[in-house]
């Protein structure tokens, strides 16, 4: 309750409040979507195919008679879950490797950064496409491919932040006072790095969402019976001329997700940046 009151006292702009609510709803869908769905999202009923909206099926049914609303809700788990997994992995990998380079300096730093450069040379989506080609299709491989194509951006930023922070007086003081290397990083450097990474990450969620759904749309991610938003758009293309409304819903969900997290990222940046500029800049 106090957290909520504190949040309200900040008086965030209405757009930001709306985005927060929407993010909570999306998170709820991601966690409980398949259980909240009124029908089995993969249940085929050919006698019910391509029905318009009705009380039983609020958004109608698709070309195999599956309930569109149920598929949207269950698909949220796959689409958003994939993004959540990518985010966690990219942050761990990026911050881990970046901090290592920033703390180590010298040859280790140079070697890691050259590897990063090689990854940064190629556009992320094209790199992800290549990795899917190497690893094979499937949801887990799409996640891995997007992680492999994004981590270097995070590593480079984390490295720059850590390299700046490690010369700060308060960090040097901790070192002089006898704090071990690892402890210094964990206690004194990472908190400042993570705030900055959170901004980058929240602005990048939309990107990841578009990459995951794009790869799925190309038929490289989730395999057909399972629901996923990008796959649903691909399914709907076959009936684009007869039942155009089917292509609408999954696209709107993707768009809503991207808008939500872009707005949150903007808000986060506005809220966190002044503090970071005062405390986090390299001398």
């Amino acid at each position: 309750m106090t957290l909520l009151q504190a949040g309200m006292a900040l008086r965030p702009p209405p757009g930001l409040r709306l985005a927060s609510v929407s993010a909570l709803l999306l998170a709820g869908l991601m966690l409980f979507g398949p259980w909240l769905a009124p029908y089995d999202p993969t249940e085929v009923a050919l006698d019910l195919k391509l029905m318009g909206p009705s009380l039983a099926h609020p958004l109608g049914t698709d070309h195999l008679g599956r309930d569109v609303l149920s598929r949207l809700m269950a698909g949220a788990q796959v689409s958003l879950g994939a993004v959540a997994a990518i985010l966690a992995l990219v942050l761990t990998l990026g911050v881990g490797i970046g901090s290592l380079a920033g703390m180590a300096g010298g040859r280790t730093d140079a070697a890691i950064m050259r590897v990063c450069d090689a990854f940064l040379t190629i556009p992320t989506f094209i790199l992800a496409l290549f990795f899917v080609g190497v690893l094979g299709t499937g949801p887990a491989n799409v996640v891995t491919a997007v992680v492999l194509s994004h981590w270097a951006w995070y590593a480079r930023m984390a490295r720059a932040l850590v390299a700046g922070l490690k010369r700060q007086d308060y960090v040097l003081a901790a070192r002089v006072a006898g704090t071990g290397r690892l402890m210094t990083v964990v206690r004194h450097i990472l908190p400042a790095v993570l705030a900055q990474m959170a901004i980058l990450a929240s602005l990048d969620i939309g990107h990841m969402m578009l990459h995951v759904s794009g790869l799925s749309f190309l038929g490289l991610g989730v395999t057909p019976p399972d629901p996923e938003w990008g796959v649903m758009i691909n399914d709907a293309r076959a009936v684009l001329w007869t039942q155009p409304v089917l292509v609408l819903w999954p696209g709107l969900m993707i768009m809503l997700t991207v808008m939500t997290f872009n707005r949150l990222g903007d808000g986060l940046r506005d809220a966190l940046d002044p503090a970071l500029q005062a405390g986090g800049k390299a001398p």
Partner: peptide, 12 residues
């Protein structure tokens, strides 16, 4: 709004 529209969806 524009940055949030998936390009393949916009195509359709």
């Amino acid at each position: 709004v524009g940055v949030s529209v998936p390009n393949f969806w916009l195509g359709f």
